[in-house]
Write a protein that binds this DNA or RNA. Structure first.
Lengths: 345, 345
DNA sequence: CTGAAAGCGCTTACAG
DNA sequence: CTGAAAGCGCTTACAG
């Protein structure tokens, strides 16, 4: 049997034969009620399948226990993004555990609209993911709403943000490859505006330099990519494949796994052997990287830690706690897999 | 300069020197206001950065313009799931276009909790994704809330659901492989409780049978997997690799890409050539399938169509329209890629 | 231990 | 064209 969608507290109270106040007390669990009365109310609630309105509650509590998550990206994939998707999964679980729920929005125009929307929804706090424009941060700051940034690019010391230590990760990638004896590097670098890509590249080059390997000597060639997709990695490698082969680059580093997979596909399709003739390394440790053949060496990103902490730090912010770290960095480490493992070292 | 978080309509009205009713009319755009008054209110709103409370509005409108999306899965990945993630991306975009926002929950215990939660949030409608238990459906049905199921398993003719035509897809996969001359098939089938997996398997076997290829003759071996992950595909193939090679199976079909990628990885790692010595085929057309080497032949699933329609059909349901199709099926087609393409046909 | 009243921030008839 | 009043569904002091 279907029923009226939602009963109100008043109806509940009437059925139980008590006042609204009393009904409220037993339903919300705040305040006293005699066992007898309590029983009657509970029974009536059961009968009506009474569901207290979170909307009305939010109205009086002046808070919603909802967290707004906005992903700033101009194209798909958004949620299904190999890295952000994992972070969002963790956010979802951590939020659940702390009693929050998630309002999810994507903002493809990198505009203020989605922020306004979240503000109107009266979310308790905001998690801003990916590269958002500076004006968004300035805007959010004007409101007194708790918020933090994940994997964004800001130098603003006031902003609470969680990031991977991408520079150190880049350095480690360089070390790994140099230690294996490589001296000629071909690098595909994702968009410079992205904090991660630029820092990974920076760390990588710096470390090589400190090992005496430099681009000025023609030992390192850097190709810039306009985005960080498989397609771009694929296309750039097609363009540069002959150079790569002729100039005998033996190591390829890309600032993320997608670019690396795109590049590696071309190399394999053209019959060159990985890792025998050229080794390939990515960054992010996306699910895919371990599934391909040869499996892709990469640098890990602590998506689980970032997602979990994003929620818990935001929770602290919401509770108005003091001494919240402005910057939290996550360590990355090199994952050596088939694509950089040569038997005959 | 920071400011008080949220001003109310009353404060707005005071600043503008009008009544709440009037302020409401200009802010909401419902009702008349003289240009002069209108101007004053708008200016005050600007000054205060007034954001109308969606909570209060929902209270009086008795609707929220929010849609609840619940993904029923017992383990990660959820949002980052290669197929569901894509569907959710589309849901997000379609919702935006129709003026809805998304409340996203995962329900790992396949319980009623998340449903209760959405009901309390007073969402306008519900999208239930993946394998939910029958009791969840029965429960939701009791409330008069618009809802639909995506990729779930139900025979219930009352339930509005969107599914891929998995049986036809399985048939087409069989046709493709048989047409290439294969006569010995090794199949890894995902969990039978999942509608998709069981139908894909069914369609595949039926079509083979109708082509005179049957398991009773030892031409088709089916191995069941407890889940649909890369890891399981990998493990099962490791277990059966010798059989596969000795009995000279030439075609491997898996009921999704993940299983197929796991299986293919083992085959390649053991030095067997794909497609020369064995062809491999998956299902879902996940992003990964085109990125590996050799690229994986697969069967497409119209994630974009499913996601888009989920929102628009739910919108129709919410508006109380008539004649909503109970079942919407999406066609799948075979994508032939390197893993099943033999030069010397 | 229980109930009447006020209030959260809006909108919507209804007067004027 | 504008304002006073009632009401959406709750909770929270405050009386009793």
């Amino acid at each position: 049997m279907n029923q009226k969608l939602n009963y109100s507290l008043r109806e509940l109270a009437e059925l139980a034969g008590v006042s609204k106040s009393t009904a409220s007390r037993v339903i919300s669990g705040n305040g006293y009620a005699s066992p007898d009365v309590r029983e009657r109310v509970l029974q009536a609630a059961d009968q009506l399948r009474y569901k207290p309105s979170a909307v009305a509650r939010a109205m009086v509590a002046k808070r919603t226990y909802n967290i707004g998550v906005i992903v700033f990206r101009d194209k798909l994939p958004i949620v299904s993004h190999t890295l952000y998707g994992r972070i969002i999964d963790e956010i979802l679980m951590a939020a659940e555990a702390l009693g929050y729920s998630i309002f999810l929005k994507t903002d493809r125009e990198m505009s203020l609209r989605s922020t306004d929307y979240m503000l109107e929804q009266r979310v308790d706090g905001l998690i801003l993911i990916s590269r958002l424009q500076k004006n968004v941060i300035d805007y959010v700051k004007k409101f007194n709403i708790p918020y933090l940034m994940v994997n964004g690019s800001t130098e603003d010391p006031d902003v609470v943000h969680l990031v991977s230590n991408d520079e150190a990760g880049g350095e480690r990638a360089a070390e790994h490859l140099a230690a294996d004896g490589h001296r000629k590097f071909f690098v595909i670098a994702g968009p410079g505006e992205h904090r991660s890509h630029s820092l990974r590249l920076k760390g990588f080059c710096q470390r090589l330099e400190s090992l005496g390997i430099s681009s000025s000597q023609g030992q390192v060639t850097i190709v810039k990519s306009l985005d960080s997709s498989f397609e771009s990695g694929h296309e750039l490698m097609e363009q540069h494949f002959n150079t790569l082969r002729e100039a005998q680059y033996t190591a390829i580093f890309c600032t993320n796994d997608m670019l690396a997979l795109g590049a590696m596909k071309v190399i394999l399709d053209r019959g060159m052997k990985v890792p025998e003739e050229a080794v390939v390394m990515g960054y992010d440790n996306t699910e895919l990287s371990s599934m391909v053949h040869p499996s892709l060496s990469t640098v890990s990103v602590d998506a689980a830690g970032i997602g979990r902490d994003a929620v818990s730090i935001l929770d602290h912010l919401i509770r108005g706690e003091e001494n919240i770290p402005r910057l939290t960095e996550y360590e990355s480490h090199v994952l050596v897999r088939q694509s950089t493992t040569r038997e005959e070292k």
